[in-house]
Lab assay of single mutants.
Amino acid sequence: ENVVSAPMPGKVLRVLVRVGDRVRVGQGLLVLEAMKMENEIPSPRDGVVKRILVKEGEIDDTGQPLIELG
């Protein structure tokens, strides 16, 4: 899985990584606010952040691509 998608609709509060960062499975990639709760979205695998497809403050839909890993 190279693309991390939104598991729920919500607002992107914080992006915790930058392009080029090495990430490990379970590491937080970004924080979504949904139903007044903050949810940290973890990396599904080890890899390198290739692209960040959303910006802080954006509203996303379920299934929307958020981050691409390489």
Score class of each variant (00 low, 15 high):
Glu1Ser: 13
Glu1Trp: 14
Glu1Pro: 12
Val3Pro: 04
Val3Ala: 06
Val3Arg: 06
Val3Lys: 06
Val3Leu: 12
Val3Met: 13
Val4Thr: 03
Val4Arg: 03
Ser5Thr: 14
Ser5Cys: 15
Ser5Asp: 06
Ser5Gln: 11
Ala6Leu: 07
Ala6Thr: 06
Ala6His: 03
Pro7Val: 07
Pro7Ser: 08
Met8Ile: 09
Met8Asn: 08
Pro9Asn: 09
Pro9His: 11
Gly10Tyr: 08
Gly10Phe: 11
Gly10Ile: 06
Lys11Asp: 02
Lys11Gln: 06
Lys11Met: 09
Lys11Asn: 05
Lys11Leu: 09
Val12Gln: 00
Val12Cys: 06
Val12Arg: 00
Val12Ile: 13
Leu13Ile: 13
Arg14Asn: 05
Arg14Lys: 11
Arg14Asp: 03
Arg14Ile: 08
Val15Gly: 00
Val15His: 02
Val15Ala: 01
Val15Phe: 12
Val15Ile: 15
Val15Cys: 07
Leu16Met: 09
Leu16Gln: 02
Val17Met: 00
Val17Asp: 01
Arg18Phe: 08
Arg18Lys: 14
Arg18Tyr: 06
Val19Thr: 07
Val19Leu: 07
Gly20Ser: 04
Gly20Val: 02
Gly20Met: 05
Asp21Lys: 03
Asp21Leu: 06
Asp21Cys: 07
Asp21Gln: 14
Asp21Tyr: 06
Asp21Met: 09
Arg22Cys: 14
Arg22Glu: 10
Arg22Leu: 12
Arg22Thr: 11
Arg22Asp: 08
Val23Arg: 01
Val23Gly: 02
Val23Lys: 01
Val23Asn: 01
Arg24Ser: 11
Arg24Pro: 02
Arg24Ile: 11
Val25Trp: 08
Val25Gln: 13
Gly26Arg: 04
Gly26Glu: 02
Gly26Asn: 06
Gln27Gly: 03
Gly28Leu: 13
Gly28Tyr: 08
Gly28Trp: 08
Gly28Thr: 15
Gly28His: 08
Leu29Thr: 01
Leu29Cys: 07
Leu29Asn: 00
Leu30Asn: 00
Leu30Glu: 00
Val31Pro: 00
Val31Ile: 13
Val31Tyr: 04
Val31Asp: 00
Val31Ser: 02
Leu32Asn: 00
Leu32Cys: 04
Leu32Arg: 01
Leu32Gly: 00
Glu33Arg: 08
Glu33Pro: 00
Glu33Thr: 07
Glu33Asn: 04
Ala34Pro: 01
Ala34Cys: 14
Ala34Asn: 13
Ala34Tyr: 15
Met35Lys: 11
Met35Ile: 07
Lys36Gln: 13
Lys36Trp: 11
Lys36Tyr: 12
Lys36Phe: 13
Lys36Val: 06
Lys36Ala: 13
Met37Arg: 12
Met37Ala: 10
Met37Gln: 12
Met37Thr: 12
Met37Glu: 11
Glu38His: 10
Glu38Trp: 10
Glu38Asn: 08
Glu38Ala: 10
Glu38Thr: 10
Glu38Leu: 12
Asn39Ile: 15
Asn39Gln: 14
Asn39Thr: 14
Asn39Pro: 02
Glu40Val: 15
Glu40Lys: 09
Glu40Asp: 06
Glu40Phe: 12
Glu40Leu: 15
Ile41Ala: 01
Ile41Asp: 01
Ile41Asn: 02
Ser43Leu: 02
Ser43Asp: 00
Ser43Lys: 01
Ser43Cys: 09
Pro44Asn: 05
Arg45Cys: 13
Arg45Lys: 11
Arg45Trp: 14
Arg45Ala: 10
Asp46Glu: 09
Asp46Val: 06
Asp46Phe: 07
Asp46Asn: 12
Asp46Pro: 07
Asp46Ser: 09
Gly47Arg: 02
Gly47Ser: 04
Gly47Ala: 09
Val48Pro: 01
Val48Gln: 07
Val48Trp: 14
Val48Met: 08
Val48Lys: 05
Val48His: 08
Val49Gly: 01
Val49Thr: 00
Val49Gln: 00
Val49Phe: 00
Arg51Ala: 12
Arg51Phe: 09
Arg51Ser: 10
Ile52Leu: 05
Ile52Cys: 04
Ile52Phe: 02
Ile52Ser: 01
Leu53Glu: 03
Leu53Lys: 03
Leu53Val: 05
Leu53His: 09
Val54Pro: 01
Lys55Glu: 12
Lys55Cys: 12
Lys55Tyr: 12
Glu56Val: 14
Glu56Gln: 10
Gly57Asn: 07
Glu58Asp: 14
Ile59Lys: 07
Ile59Gln: 10
Ile59Gly: 05
Asp60Met: 15
Asp60Ser: 15
Asp60Glu: 15
Asp61Ile: 13
Asp61Glu: 13
Asp61Tyr: 15
Thr62Pro: 10
Thr62Gln: 12
Gly63Asn: 09
Gly63Leu: 07
Gly63Pro: 04
Gly63His: 08
Gly63Ser: 08
Gln64Arg: 11
Gln64Asp: 13
Pro65Ala: 11
Pro65His: 08
Pro65Asp: 05
Pro65Trp: 09
Pro65Arg: 06
Leu66Met: 11
Ile67Cys: 03
Ile67Asn: 01
Glu68Ala: 07
Leu69Cys: 05
Leu69His: 01
Leu69Asp: 00
Gly70Arg: 12
Gly70Glu: 15
Gly70Gln: 13
